[in-house]
Amino acid sequence: MIIEVNNLTVKYQLNSIFEGISFGVNFGDYIGIVGPNGSGKTTLVRVILGLITSFSGEVKLFGTNNLSFSDWKRIGYLPQVTYLSRQGFPATVQEIIASGLLTQKKFPKRILAKDQVAVDKTLKLLNLESLQKELIGKLSGGQQQRVFLARALVSEPDLLILDEPTSAIDPIIREQFYETLSDLNTKKRITILLITHDSSIIGKYASKFLYLDRKIVFYGSFQDFCKSDNMVEYFGEFAQHLICHQHNGTNNF
């Protein structure tokens, strides 16, 4: 199992963000994490990655306790875009993407010619070639998101964790973006954990669905979600229909 979460509770001051949640992620899964604002989606992935260290319960990454995990080359992470803080930062797109390769490096870390090949390949994959010499601070939010996705992908990780990757991308490119991710999942067998607000779109691509709202409301395949009477009750028929409607025909309910 790639990720194991057992009885996880996270509190912020006196309020709990979520309590006692457990789930597991298998190799090759493509999981869409969905939930309303403030439901703890971002907190969940930040705990998994060890960016939040005060929690109770157990989290394992590739079989290792997440706080002592060090094999970072197996993970690519795309955080939520914080557009304003990048303004004026003098790094080029190429420099940012190459930094994603540091997970494979030991002291003294150097970017070599073969690393440049990996960077060029990722630039091509995400159609970023024309932007490679541009300064990150001068790009639009959507372009920055693609650069950060490239940084997450360049080391060819086994697990990709994406936090709202399409929030700054316009709808046409959004579809292409999801197609690219699906390819990575099916062809390169990269396990994907994707937080999104696009609950209607994610059904078309992800294989599993994790609905979080301070607890796990639902975790399982789309087929099961769409057939579940409990979920119809929870979401109301219209909303559930919206989530299931665009799924690519495998859920014949």
Binding site: L49, W72, A91, T103
Partner: peptide, 10 residues
């Protein structure tokens, strides 16, 4: 560039 992200880069 990003202090928090650095952690994920080892």
């Amino acid at each position: 560039f990003d202090e928090e992200f650095a952690h994920v880069l080892g």
